[in-house]
Amino acid sequence: MSKTDDLIIQLSGSPVRAPLRQRRLAAIATLAMLVPVALFLAEFGMRRGLMSAWSNPVVILKTLLPLGICGLSLVLLLRLIRPEARIGRAGYGYAAPVAVALLLWAGAFISRAPQARFAEVGTFSLTECLGSILMLSIVPLVGLLMLARQGASTAPQLSGALVGLTAASGVTAGYSLFCTRDNPLFFVTWYGVAILIVTVVGAIVGRRVLQW
């Protein structure tokens, strides 16, 4: 028991650490996503006629859906920073954006002529879309993992997945301002694939680095 007492004396001598503040963490996380996206858009520019493209609600959803997923994931991620926290019912929040995305996909599949459905799929378009989202995700993925390490998630793998999901969907929302492919069969599928890849990477890495 005396060793425990020694430990307590030793621990109580170390400097204080201020409680983590959710708002501050959220601000840092947002910055980690915003900076690479801003650099990307500054270099390659937004799509031409973005404003007029927004007259089509599908184009607005292309940005709003990943943005919504990013917001929800960030909230859940920051919640899990406390060891006693659980996601609980908030996880159902994904149902709405996912349902809308699937409806968009199905609607486009039905309304388009068979040869027009996957017309945009090609090496260049896929490399551009997947490549950009994956590259843009790297900085926020690392940044958010470092942020999450300050916390004490008792579900490291889940927290890691949320890091990946937040980072990838956040940069996807930004990338969508550049992307001109408005066919939901294209963007729902390939944005989705890119986001899932980063989420899985986040889960795998998180499982290791978010342990404490």
Partner: peptide, 22 residues
């Protein structure tokens, strides 16, 4: 007792994760 000490250390290292409102 080793585990007790591990827990104390973890509390110490993660003391910033307690939300004073909780």
């Amino acid at each position: 007792e080793d585990i007790v000490q591990d827990v104390l250390l973890a509390i110490h290292r993660k003391r910033q994760t307690w939300d004073p409102g909780q």
